[in-house]
Design a protein around this nucleic acid. Structure first.
Lengths: 228, 228
DNA sequence: GCAAAAGTGTTAACGCTACACCCATGG
DNA sequence: CCATGGGTGTAGCGTTAACACTTTTGC
């Protein structure tokens, strides 16, 4: 029998769909490649797995080195194994998506010049490799996840108003949701806690500030959408 | 820069959770290993990915050679990348689950002697590697999938009665579901088509036979469970 | 006719949608 | 005191859960 690592194995990469929410817009972080293949094309940030790394480790390393982010929400999406997906050879990619609050990091089209840029998810450029497929799966996953799991908090500040959370939901789901029904749903589910403080300095009534309830009980949560 | 495949890469394997339904019991196919590691332990069927294969190809090859099955429902579960998950070295496994109708295949504890056996999912033995984790994720996925997608048909015969489908749901979800409400839900969703024929030779009223409607419209399907 | 399972109908309770209304704030 | 958005309440509708009843078959 052959020794274990004498078999030829495909290369293993991680590709990241990094979602950020800012100014009522859901965006994804893209890199403009300097090298072939897909030179000068936009692609998802990604990198190869090293022997002593888990996928999460690789994701963290990429996020840290390429875009200066740390300690973010990460979830595995799917593994992409098409034989032709990388012109350099057999590369299998494990897709992950990350949710980050752009306000926490300073690289909004910053340090890496034109290399790194946020793109509105509704105005995506052509992507290299099979990254469009990965991106679309990530967006779809985010849409369904937010309906039954409190994932939106990763995209907002520590303290937020219900209106801000409401706008986030409308933005991600691309629908209108009744403001008052949304409020009741979210409060009933006990996903958020009233901090007692209010957002000051607005022209009108100061809304109450909430934070995410990390000790939530059960999955008694289901946003229903009104399509109109 | 190094050539592409000179990097050392982890080995890539596929592990399969093969579900079968028979006699009102949901079962999983396990193999008793002849070799180290985990010699004489029960494990999920699995195998290494070859350079010219997709994961699905690998799954099909394993199903065909190890248990003689062909052309079955397959879905990717998750990729397992713990550094220590295989004592032989770094092996990354992509979990898949399959749904099969045991009646279609003859290897119910057959050709491979004591090697291959169905286990009731409620009475699983200890499993080698991290296979218990993979199995549990598969079972959980099946449970949630069956609530919104007509996946149960893969486990039944071509023609089936509503009662049989109902029993399948109760078995997988481990609850009781009101017979009459279940019938209405399933019929309203138009997931099944009345064939006009009836199951003959029973002691009581002959139930109508249905088959799966492959041209279903939309995801207007949601089984709700009554826990009692 | 009886037992057992299949098929059909009904009702009451609940949850959701679609609203109207009041409140707080700055200008 | 007006404009603007935040906060609260509620009526009506639709869906669902929880049932009872009838039908068909073999013995």
């Amino acid at each position: 029998m052959k020794q274990f690592h004498e078999y030829q194995n495909p290369s293993l990469a991680v590709d990241l769909v990094v979602f950020g929410y800012h100014d009522n817009t859901l965006s994804v972080l893209l890199l403009n490649r300097r090298e072939e293949p897909f030179k000068d094309c936009w692609t998802l940030p990604g990198g190869f797995l090293q022997m002593n790394e888990t996928f999460r480790d690789t994701c963290s390393r990429i996020l840290k080195t390429k875009v200066g982010m740390d300690n973010v929400f990460l979830e595995q999406l799917y593994s992409f194994d098409d034989l032709q997906r990388d012109p350099r050879g057999r590369v299998i990619a494990v897709g992950y998506y990350a949710l980050i609050n752009p306000a926490r990091f300073s690289i909004i089209a910053g340090s890496m010049a034109n290399d790194v840029k946020w793109f509105n998810v509704r105005k995506m450029p052509a992507l290299g490799f099979d990254h469009r497929e990965i991106f679309q799966l990530a967006l779809q996953r985010l849409k369904s996840k937010i309906l039954y799991y409190p994932v939106g908090f990763e995209l907002l500040d520590e303290l937020f108003t219900i209106t801000e959370l409401h706008e986030l939901y409308e933005c991600i789901l691309q629908t209108t949701i009744d403001r008052r029904n949304f409020r009741r749903k979210i409060l009933d589910a006990e996903y958020i806690i009233n901090t007692g403080t209010k957002r000051e300095g607005l022209q009108n009534r100061h809304p109450e500030l909430y934070r995410f309830n990390r000790k939530l009980k059960k999955n008694n949560f289901q946003i229903n959408i009104n399509i109109s």
